[in-house]
């Protein structure tokens, strides 16, 4: 039996990569993917902890997180398309008309 801390460390690693990705990348879609990465990391730790704790609540939570991720994908990409339509670019650095 793999101890739960391995899973948790792994998910922490993945979570950090996700965060770093969000901070570094300029392309909106890649940023979105990094957020997906973070969500997956959380799912992983949820499931691991659910096994540790012994009840299924964790897995139900993961189920709902997936729902959210799907919704996010739909809305996110729709926004990126509508932005692309007027700003002709997906780079977040171009989206800085609103500042100050």
């Amino acid at each position: 039996m793999v101890p739960v801390t391995y899973y948790l460390t792994l998910s922490a690693l993945m979570f950090t990569l996700g965060i770093v990705g969000v901070v570094i990348r300029r392309n909106a879609i890649v940023v979105f993917m990094c957020i997906e990465l973070m969500l997956n990391a959380v799912n992983l730790s949820f499931v691991a902890l659910s096994r540790l704790v012994g009840n299924l609540d964790g897995q139900i939570a993961v189920f709902f997180v997936m729902v959210v991720a799907a919704a996010e994908a739909a809305v996110g990409l729709a926004i990126i398309i509508s932005l692309f339509r007027s700003a002709k670019s997906v780079e977040t650095s171009d989206a800085n008309q609103l500042n100050g």
Binding site: N40, L44, V47, F63, M66, A69, A70
Partner: peptide, 21 residues
């Protein structure tokens, strides 16, 4: 990640992961 789920015998989630994600 789906494989991981399976290892943690969250089988339903593994399948959903593959299909949805």
């Amino acid at each position: 990640v789906a494989v991981m789920f399976a290892m943690l015998n969250a089988h339903f989630l593994a399948v959903v992961q593959v299909i949805v994600y």
